[in-house]
Each structure stands twice: as C-alpha cells, then as structure tokens.
C-alpha cells in the first residue's frame, strides 16, 4: 500500500460523501458547533479564573486542540474500521479485505477512511494556529519541528488505542464499552496533567501514556511545570506514538490470525 493508493481511497470516500453534500456540510457544521461548545466552556472558565494549573486561555486552547487534532487524524482511519471490526468479521465482510494484494490492516483502514473528521480538523487546526500566534514561546526551527512530529506521534497514539480496543473486540465480549471508557480517559488530557495527583501523573505517562499526546510535548515547548514527571521524558514523544502503533498493529494481526485459525 503506497501513499497514492491511500489517497485514491480517501478521494473516493470524499466523492461518495459529496453525493449527499447537504448532509455532509450540515454534519461538519454540527460537529464544529459540538466541539466549539467545549472550547467555549473552557473559555468561560478561564474568563473567570484566568489559569488552570498555571496555563492561561491560549495555552489551554492549544493543549485541547492538540488532543482533538491528533484524535481526528488517528480516528479518521481507525474509528470506523475498529468500531465495526467485530461485525465485519462475523458477517464475512472482512474476507474480501484478506484477498487484496495489500496488507489487510492498510486495506481496511484505507477502505473505511472517514472523511467526516474534517470538522474536527478544521476547528482544532484553526484554534491551534490561533493559539500559537498568541503565545510568545521563542519559536525556533527545532521547536516547530518537534511540535509537528508530536502531532504525528499523537495521531499514532489515538489510532493505536482505537486499534487495540477494536482488536480486543474479536476476542472478548462486549468490548464496545471499552471504546466509551477510552473517551472517559481522554478527559484527563483536556487539562494540564500536573493538576492531578502523583499516581495519576505516573499512570498517564506509563500504562496509559496519554500525557505524551499533548501535555508533555507542550510542557517542553512552553517550558511548563511537569509535576512529578521529569521534564526530559517529553523527549520520548516522537517514539511513543510509533511504538504504540506498532504494538497495536501486532495485536491486530494476532487477533485477526485467531479468526483465520492460524496456530490453533
């Protein structure tokens, strides 16, 4: 699977959505309003209290945007296939994916690419750019590059989480509750991780390393307090995403192999 083939799939999905243009645009609008409301509540809160854990409004906006943006990129190609995976396998719709001359994970994610995340990307991307313009962070080429890589790595982390849960749905019953659980955990990184107790801070950098999605890279760039977590750990951001994605991909393979009956 190369990039041009992936883009071909994405283009077809876009074209398909454009068959119902009005519904699509309304949907984009509704989702912008939906996420916009969350931003608005954060803004109202900071109007009153000025900072949360030492982060002011543009900084909180940046923190939240980085989470939404990376989620949108990761979810665009994993949300639909992973929430549907159990059904796909049960109904045999997964079979045609296995007889394509390409990697099944790539084929599946390309084929079920969801262009509906455009709304998330437009909104969070826009606010991200706005908040960056409001910060005086002594931008250097290094910092900019680090932020860029953090976006990609964060997208991998979100995709990895969805992939792990989707793969688990092939093995355990009622895994859909895990998807909801995942969204509850996301709530942690809407705020600076340093406001939580030490145990939570450690949890969010180790077992569920959500802090690497937005808090740690931004703390490094904006030179913020990282609580009990050593700031240097933030340098691991570029590799945490790919490593998690690789683990998730292996899990996907093991779980789909189980369906295929390889090794028992």
């Amino acid at each position: 699977m190369n990039m041009s083939l992936f883009l071909h799939y994405a283009r077809l999905r876009m074209k398909e959505r454009m068959e119902y243009r009005a519904a699509f645009i309304l949907g984009v609008f509704a989702q912008i309003v939906g996420y916009g409301a969350t931003y608005f509540v954060l803004w109202l809160t900071l109007q009153k209290f000025e900072t949360i854990g030492g982060w002011n409004w543009p900084e909180i906006a940046l923190l939240y945007s980085l989470n939404v943006l990376t989620y949108a990129i990761g979810a665009a190609y994993t949300y639909t296939p992973m929430t549907e995976l159990e059904q796909l396998v049960q109904k045999g719709t997964f079979d045609p994916v296995l007889i394509r001359p390409n990697n099944p994970f790539m084929t599946l994610t390309a084929q079920m690419f969801n262009v509906g995340y455009l709304a998330h990307i437009l909104l969070s991307g826009g606010i991200l750019v706005w908040s960056l313009s409001r910060l005086d962070a002594d931008w250097t080429f290094g910092k900019a590059a680090f932020l860029m890589i953090s976006v990609l790595s964060g997208a991998c982390m979100h995709a990895a989480l969805l992939t792990l849960i989707g793969s688990a749905s092939l093995v355990i019953v009622r895994a859909e509750v895990l998807f909801r659980f995942n969204y509850s955990l996301q709530e942690f990184i809407s705020y600076p991780v340093s406001i939580f107790g030490p145990a939570i801070q450690i949890l969010l950098t180790t077992i569920v390393p959500l802090a690497f999605i937005n808090f740690l890279p931004l703390a490094l760039i904006l030179n913020k307090d990282t609580g009990i977590i050593p700031r240097e750990i933030a340098w691991l951001t570029p590799i945490v995403g790919p490593v998690l994605m690789w683990l998730a991909y292996r899990t996907f393979q093991v779980c789909t192999n189980r369906y295929q009956g390889a090794g028992g």
Partner: peptide, 14 residues
C-alpha cells in the same frame, strides 16, 4: 444479503 457495509457506516464519527 449484506450490502456494502463499508458505506453504511460512513456518516458516523465521534
């Protein structure tokens, strides 16, 4: 018949 499950779920995001 199970028609085109790929498209059926296209509209859902979270």
């Amino acid at each position: 018949s199970e028609l085109d499950i790929w498209s059926r779920h296209r509209a859902v995001t979270r």
